[in-house]
Design a protein around this nucleic acid. Structure first.
Length: 426
DNA sequence: TCTGGGGTCCTAGGACCC
DNA sequence: TCTGGGGTCCTAGGACCC
């Protein structure tokens, strides 16, 4: 068994640099929606000790002193670069699992062990040459070890971006594991790190030496699985076909606090439109919609309110109009006028395949067909003219939505929009 | 003044049933 | 004196991932 994990270094920052070579070697961050907090950092920024998730406004002064360049996130660009990267990597193995926007697993079973590192180097070089993105490669017998090897490949320059765990000798492995904190392990987050520390488990080595059955009792089944994976026993299979989502959400923080129900209704509309598009894309229907609204948790001195409401549908549906109606009834139920809302969201749940749809005994079949056709037309228009091309009347006009998010420094959509196409500089 | 968004899985506890 | 046991289903909350 040999699994490779390939992922891009500082993916969002690297995407920006492909089209802005002048950003190379300079400290660059990419910000979340609303230019809220740091979601990607260049190596130069990491070296300054700036943590992921730091609110941008707290960094302004330091940014000025250090010359940090901040970009708003440009998801159209990152998604397109991701697709290109995945397509290139898919040529290295018949079995690929796209795990996130910037990383995938490849099944390298069947390749001679002696060739694995070279395959890793070839993949790395190709992504660099064809796309301009730097990537790291980890190869091992299990996914968890491949993730760890990938980390090693990036951390230690002598590996030149590729670490084949299986080719390392016992002593090297032990030294590496002893030097890696347990928090580097896939599946071990902040809370588990604390709990493990209280048991005297600090390094990955410490964790690997524990007994999975004992740990199953004191933690949970996921922990036992992680330990087995660290010990070289593959427990997490590669999933080639992305399973359909069991929950779909669309939520956003507002560009400014919102108090009027009309504005909230506009936002709920827009989010429901987005969520139902995703729902139809995976050929699903949903049985319930939940909406939630909240004030900012970062101002405890102000009145706080957080409420959510689930509205069950009489018949599972994928019709935007039906879902909007349900969502708005939920909103009216939980809305309180005295608060300043910072965020709203729409969640679709009880999702199942459209092919398992239960028909309404009393509804005319013709109505269903018309709904299907309307939704297909809507999706076609959105594909062609962008997802804001058509909105239900209640969603308000885009230019007038003053609650929309802020994106002060977004790069052009170089690869997905004709008018933004990158031009050669003269 | 200003703090992201979208997912998955597991567990505990309550309701309910026989 | 002594008040069962086991199963299923659902939901909320927590932990994790990128």
């Amino acid at each position: 068994m040999a699994i490779a994990l390939i992922d891009a270094n500082n993916f969002y920052v690297s995407c920006e640099r492909v089209f802005r070579p002048d950003l190379e070697g300079r400290p660059v961050v990419v910000l979340s929606n609303n230019d809220g907090c740091v979601v990607a950092r260049s190596a130069e920024v990491k070296a300054l000790g700036i943590a992921i998730g730091t609110p941008w406004f707290q960094l302004q002064k330091q940014a000025q002193q250090e010359g940090i360049i901040a970009m708003s996130s440009n998801y159209a660009l990152y998604a397109d670069m991701s697709n290109r990267m995945m397509r290139i990597l898919s040529t290295f193995s018949p079995i690929q699992e796209v795990y996130s926007i910037d990383e995938c697993f490849l099944d390298l079973r069947g390749f001679a062990p002696a060739h694995l590192s070279r395959i890793g180097q070839a993949a790395r070089l190709k992504i660099r040459q064809w796309l301009g993105l730097p990537v790291g490669v980890g190869i091992a017998a299990t996914k968890t070890l491949a993730k760890l090897a990938n980390h090693v490949a990036k951390k230690y320059p002598e590996y030149q971006g590729v670490c084949n765990w299986e080719s390392l000798n016992t002593q090297t492995r032990q030294t590496l594991l002893q030097n890696l904190p347990v928090s580097e392990v896939w599946g071990v987050g902040r809370r588990l790190t604390e709990k493990l520390a209280s048991q005297g488990i600090q390094s990955v080595w410490d964790l690997q030496q524990t007994h999975p059955v004992w740990m199953r009792q004191h933690f949970n089944i996921l922990m036992a699985r992680t330990i087995r994976e660290l010990q070289g026993e593959s427990c997490i299979a590669l999933t080639e076909i992305a399973p359909t989502k069991q929950e779909i959400q669309s939520s956003r923080s507002f560009g400014r606090p919102v108090t009027r129900i009309e504005d909230l209704a506009e936002a709920i509309n827009v989010y429901t439109v987005r969520a139902t598009q995703k729902l139809r894309q995976q050929e699903s229907i949903c049985g319930a919609v939940r909406i939630d609204i909240r004030t900012t948790p970062f101002r405890p001195d102000k009145p706080q309110y957080h409420a959510s409401q689930t509205v069950a549908l009489a018949i599972p549906s994928q019709d935007t109009r039906i879902l909007i109606k349900a969502a708005l009834s939920g909103l009216r139920h939980i809305y309180r006028p005295q608060f300043a809302y910072a965020k709203a969201g729409v969640h679709l749940t009880e999702i199942r395949s459209v092919h398992q749809q239960q028909r309404d005994l009393f509804a005319a079949e013709a109505l269903d067909i018309r709904s299907d056709q309307l939704m297909k037309t809507l999706d076609a228009i959105h594909t062609r003219f962008g997802h804001n091309a058509l909105q239900p009347g209640v969603a308000g006009l885009q230019g007038q939505r003053d609650w929309s998010m802020k994106r002060g420094n977004k790069s052009p959509s170089y690869t997905t929009c004709w008018s933004d196409l990158a031009r050669a500089r003269s």
